[in-house]
């Protein structure tokens, strides 16, 4: 079954990728956030470079924090951003 997810980027991740969000189709083999990152990196080398260090990235699935090992499941939105610095 064809799935898709909206990926949304913030702060330096957004600036370096040059895009704030994109709708991406997910193959059946894509199960985790790490799988999505690998897929993006294979699609475009710039992504592989920018998203290489998961320690410097934070993730949210449908506005709840997740880890790179988190399952995508039926989430509609994946956010990728640096550690937060508000307050």
């Amino acid at each position: 079954m064809a799935r898709s997810i909206n990926i949304i980027y913030f702060a330096w991740v957004r600036e370096r990728l040059g895009i704030d969000q994109e709708q991406v189709s997910l193959g059946d083999e894509i199960e985790t956030i790490a799988d999505v990152l690998s897929m993006l990196g294979e699609r475009e080398a710039a992504y592989a470079d920018i998203l290489a260090d998961v320690e410097k990235l934070r993730f949210a699935l449908d506005q709840d924090y997740g880890l790179s090992t988190s399952l995508i499941g039926s989430a509609k939105e994946l956010a990728i951003f640096p550690p937060v610095t508000g307050g």
């Binding site: 913030f10 702060a11 937060v84 610095t85 508000g86």
Partner: peptide, 27 residues
């Protein structure tokens, strides 16, 4: 609330220096 806000709420600060240098603040 402040301690959690600073580490959980999704805000990001970008600073611009007087000389024009721009940098995203790090955790």
């Amino acid at each position: 609330i402040m301690d959690k806000l600073k580490t959980v709420a999704p805000f990001w600060k970008k600073e611009t220096r007087a000389d024009g240098a721009v940098k995203w603040i790090e955790e």
